[in-house]
Amino acid sequence: MELRVTELACARGGLPLIEGLSFAVGPGEALVLRGPNGSGKTTLLRTLAGLQPALDGEISCPPEQMAYAAHADGLKSTLSVRENLGFWAAIHGVSDIEPALEAMNLRDLADRQAQHLSAGQKRRLGLARLIVTGRWLWVLDEPTVSLDAASVALFAGVVRAHLATGGAALLATHIDLGLPEARVLDLGPYKAEIPADLGFGGFDGENGGAFL
């Protein structure tokens, strides 16, 4: 089991963002993606998770082995914490959600409706979903948004426990998670050249005259 990405190129809304990206993540490893806003972190993670096709290149690991977590947590406001988590557990064929509740410190909130949770508590519930997927590779987009310092530390512990059991994590984040063992990959050097024929210059180009 290993995620090996070779010469990957991906695009957002038809605009190429990343090209020539190669890296590998094996069991027990964490890889942190860095890059300014708009550098393609989310696009890369969505491509890996199989939500959009790659322009070019190869991804060795099928999306079925990845647990994807995005900015939105996929929570239903009228369901309780236990019902929300239990649903995702059932979808992934897992019946016991207690360890996940315990790990993300949600046990006291288990019977509260998701609409009454704070933003940080919702995030913790969203991250608890990762544990019940039972998948080895976590693909995480800004997992620490709205978490306080204590919750970030709690989450770092959860990631570390996941790595210790042979899991792996790919994280796009701006803050320091407190995972010194994680490798860092800067997306800056892989920024795609925008081909001139995409015509983002609008009508200023040579065809412009035809419209005047």
């Binding site: 994807y68 900015h71 939105a72 996929g74 979808i91």
Partner: peptide, 16 residues
């Protein structure tokens, strides 16, 4: 509704 709260993305990556 599932699209708004992100469930649809997660369902699309689920085993179903």
């Amino acid at each position: 509704l599932d699209h708004e709260d992100g469930s649809l993305d997660l369902l699309a990556t689920s085993p179903i």
